[in-house]
Design a protein around this nucleic acid. Structure first.
Length: 602
DNA sequence: CTAGGGTTAG
């Protein structure tokens, strides 16, 4: 065995220490032999050792006592804070170092920029980046990749692309940062493209990069591509002890809707944690398998895994799907007892209570939150929308503006939809214009669909048609359907025919839509078209997606399916519907032609 | 030999 020099031996010893006592001894030895101040490398090493074993305060204690600090000492201290996520302390020390005339190196800049991205402090990050360039680290890959990440995390994907294109050297980390960044910003196809570009340049992917591709497949719903990425990862032995990659494969199969594959990957995981459980639970919950999701939650707890925020949010989503108010309440209790309040959980709870029928509980939670963000407001607004309270929706919306929270595209979607359902046409038009002109939110397909619905319901189909004409994008199915039902109700054959044709061009796979079109043709006495449509409907064997709603009343689950003659209160339901129907006719809320829908026998 | 990119969710 080769004999090591004294400094090297000490270094090995320090790295091997598992307790604070030997570190202190070696530290003392270094000081007494004069190595400590003579060789600044040891400053950093000793600080790092203290931080690793004794906690950050003992490291900081030593750091503060140093008469002079070399770059290694600064870096050791900064890295120690970074590892413990004391991000503002990272930036504080960095600034202190700069002010004292210290010379940051590549590591210092990298860690400081990383802290800025975690804090989403774009300006701070950019200032550090400019200084790094001044210090000659403009072409450093470590600094470069952390800058890419800064832009990605701050949602500035175009700026990230600019930096990326100008880089002289790009390693796998740079590519992975861009690819996951593109996926998370919704440019999934561009991400896949980028992967191909990377392979052309002869760069090999690694586990983290695979994760970006797995997320891309999940978002695209691409099972085939997903399977090939999975296979690639298995062949290159990237999967073996990479829990995060395994978890995102579970998530991918779940998002694609292949819950069997998702469960299989999950079961094969050698070491599961709360996040893998979470991926599977959310997969079940989002695909409508609420009962399975809730079973998994129970199983997870029985195996002593502590459900985290994400798992509970998924579980609450599952509760709201099946109207499982009792379990939702018990999750609420668990949150109060074990986790404490979090905004995301509050939002999920509001959604759960509202969808399980308890709007008052939802509002009570809303009232108790003092720092409300956009999503919380949106959820409360949407809840009143579901319950058909257009007046309260509008009043909440105005309160939200008073509270200086800027409404976003989702807020307007809920607002416009509620205004449309409650027939507030002028108010709807006013806020649609305000959204475009004052809030500078470009209207999406959904917003247009709401507006077309709003105008059509009020019989203003010509205006609705003009709005469609003004769109920059190709109008989709929802928009033409909204126009057609307006045309049907108000017997406008001219625009109705246009809408009906557009709908058939888009090949809908929904029997209800065909029924609407067919009913319109009957109204227009275009009998040949009616018979063609009926034939298509029969031959393609389209299944009627059974709509249903569920609610829990006095601890008992009630599910209501369309045309469910087996429901134990079927007669009462019919009577109730009849009396509601009469009431609506009296206030002329519904034009009576709407009942023609039942003409089509499916 | 330290440092940069990653998992579930409203």
């Amino acid at each position: 065995m080769r004999t090591l020099s004294w400094p090297k031996r000490l270094k090995h010893l320090l790295l091997a220490c598992k307790d604070e006592a030997p570190v202190t001894q070696i530290h003392a030895l270094i000081i007494t032999t004069g190595l400590f101040f003579a060789n600044s490398n040891f400053n950093g090493l000793v600080i790092a050792s203290y931080a690793r074993i004794g906690g950050i305060t003992s490291a900081r204690h030593l750091f503060d006592k140093l008469p002079q600090r070399g770059v290694d000492a600064w870096n050791a201290m900064i890295v120690a804070y970074s590892r413990r996520y004391h991000l503002t302390e990272v930036l504080n020390l960095y600034h202190q170092m700069v002010n004292e005339g210290g010379k940051p190196d590549s590591s210092t800049f990298t860690v400081a920029i990383k802290a800025s991205s975690s804090l989403k402090d774009l300006e701070a990050g950019e200032r550090i980046w400019r200084r790094a360039v001044d210090f000659g680290y403009g072409c450093d890959v470590f600094v470069g990749s952390s800058v890419l990440n800064l832009y990605v995390k701050c949602g500035k994907i175009d700026e990230a692309k600019l930096v990326f294109d100008k880089m002289v050297k790009r390693d796998v980390v740079c590519w992975a940062t861009m690819i996951t960044g593109l996926v998370q910003n919704g440019n999934v196809l561009e991400a896949v493209d980028m992967f191909r570009r990377m392979r052309k340049e002869g760069i090999e992917g690694d586990g983290v990069l695979m994760l970006g591709l797995v997320q891309a497949c999940a978002n695209l719903g691409e099972l085939k591509l997903g399977l090939s990425v999975h296979g690639h990862a298995v062949r290159r032995e990237m999967l073996m002890d990479d829990v995060i990659l395994q978890t995102s494969l579970v998530d991918m199969y779940a998002k694609i809707g292949d819950l069997e594959l998702a469960s299989r990957v999950f079961e094969q995981m050698p070491r599961k944690n709360a996040v893998s459980w979470g991926a599977l639970i959310s997969g079940f919950a989002q695909n409508g398998f609420a009962e399975y999701a809730l079973d998994l939650l129970v199983e997870m707890q029985s195996l002593e895994f502590k459900p985290d925020t994400a798992v509970l949010v998924s579980a609450l989503l599952a509760c709201s799907q099946v109207g499982h108010l009792k379990l939702g309440k018990s999750i609420h209790g668990y949150i109060v007892r074990r986790l404490g309040f979090e905004l995301v959980l509050g939002t999920a709870l509001i959604d759960m209570y509202a969808k399980c029928g308890s709007l008052s509980c939802a509002h009570a939670i809303f009232d108790r939150v003092d720092s409300r963000d956009v999503i919380l407001w949106n959820t409360m607004i949407a809840s009143y929308g579901i319950h058909g309270d257009g007046k309260e929706v509008l009043s909440l919306f105005l309160k939200m503006k008073e509270a200086n929270i800027s409404p976003d595209h989702a807020t307007f979607a809920s607002l416009l939809s509620a205004l449309s359902h409650s027939g507030q046409v002028d108010v709807g038009q006013y806020w649609f214009n305000a959204m475009v002109n004052e809030c500078k939110i470009p209207p999406s397909e959904k917003h247009y669909a709401c507006m077309v619905d709003l105008l059509s319901r009020a019989g203003r189909v010509e205006e609705a048609y003009q709005l469609i004409e003004s769109m920059n994008t190709e109008p989709g199915l929802a928009i033409w359907v909204a126009l057609l039902s307006g045309c049907h109700n108000y017997r406008n054959l001219l625009f109705g025919e246009v809408a009906a044709k557009k709908i058939l061009d888009l090949n809908p796979d929904d029997l209800g839509i065909y029924a609407l079109v067919s009913n319109f043709f009957s109204l227009a006495r275009m009998w040949d078209r009616v018979s063609i449509l009926r034939k298509i409907m029969k031959e393609t064997g389209m299944k009627k997606v059974p709509g249903y709603s569920a609610v829990e009343v006095n601890g008992k689950h009630e599910a209501f399916l369309v045309e469910d003659k087996n429901h134990h209160q079927y007669e009462e339901i019919l009577q109730m519907l009849d009396s509601l129907d009469n009431e609506m006719r009296v206030i002329r809320h519904v034009p009576d032609s709407l009942h023609d829908v039942e003409e089509v026998v499916i």
